[in-house]
Simulated assay, not measured.
Amino acid sequence: MKKILLVLSEWGYWGEELIGPLEACDAAGYDITFLTPTGKKPTPLSVSCSPGYIDPPLGRSVTSEEMAEKTRQVNESNRLDRPKNLASWIPQRPYPSSPTYLRDMEAYYMKLDKIVAEELGEYDALAIVGGSGAMIDLANNQRLHELILGFYKLNKPIAAECYGVACLAFARDFREKRSLIWGKHVTGHPIDYDYLDGTGFEGFHGIDGSNRGFGDGYINFGPPFYPLEFILRDAVGLDGAFIGNVGHQTSVLVDYPFITSRSTASSRECGRILVQVLEKGLTRYGW
């Protein structure tokens, strides 16, 4: 049985971007291990459970009754109750100001190498779910970057959806500091689809310790923190390409080992293509 490590934000994931790959992997008989940054149960964005919600850039609902119900069912089940804790698994890189920096870095790399050699081998692929929460605790999560590098070293498939693709842009060998997707063909949330207002975050977090956060658990940040398309264009370099496929209903690319998916409507295709990569050895798709 193949095993998939599936990463979710604790600040709000988009329901369909979980359901798409999850259903494909379930149908293929794969074993799923869920992973969150601190081991807390992830929260779906409420708009991804609301069919009446109109996506401003697209001017239409991007949440069907079917997907809203499936998201609610998964959230209310016990499947996501006890995800693997990234922070307790992957070490934190030492600060250069440490008085024992060189020894600390030696210990750091020894632990990482041990995890890659002895633990990552049990997984067949890594998948990163999108949604606005990914901007907060996944995109610049150094521990997640090291996990991505580990799967890359083992030549295992790495799938990312929507804002989850930012993790691939920022993942890089700390010594070389060049993006892991340099020279690759990727897709992701294009600037055409960026909100001018309403980029929301939800979860158990609250800066006052009440676990309520702003607005009883909902935070409206306005526009996204960053234009993902521009980041991806810069990350792939002159020999790579960002392909948004704006105007097409879906956009999923495979430039092995990476599988990238544009946004919500591409989620089912992303799951289907991930299975094809694992079962049929697909190495190129969509470009």
Rank of each mutant, 00 (worst) to 15 (best):
L147Y: 06
D137L: 04
R72G: 00
H205R: 10
I148M: 06
S263W: 09
L168E: 08
P227E: 04
N155Y: 06
Y108G: 02
R212H: 11
V165R: 00
S98F: 03
H145R: 09
P51M: 11
F214H: 10
H145F: 10
Y95M: 10
Q276S: 10
P257W: 08
Y256M: 08
G52C: 02
S48M: 05
S210T: 14
H189S: 06
F174H: 12
S48R: 01
G240W: 12
I4R: 03
G150C: 07
L149A: 13
A107V: 02
I243D: 11
P223A: 14
D31Y: 04
F204E: 12
L18T: 01
I19Q: 03
S132E: 00
L120P: 04
E76Q: 15
K156R: 14
V246R: 02
E76G: 06
G244V: 05
R262S: 10
C167T: 13
R175K: 14
G183N: 12
E279I: 00
S251Q: 02
A24Q: 09
E10F: 08
N78K: 13
G12S: 12
G215T: 07
T71V: 08
Q142W: 02
L102M: 11
Y13R: 00
K280L: 11
Y193R: 07
G281W: 09
S266K: 07
A134Y: 06
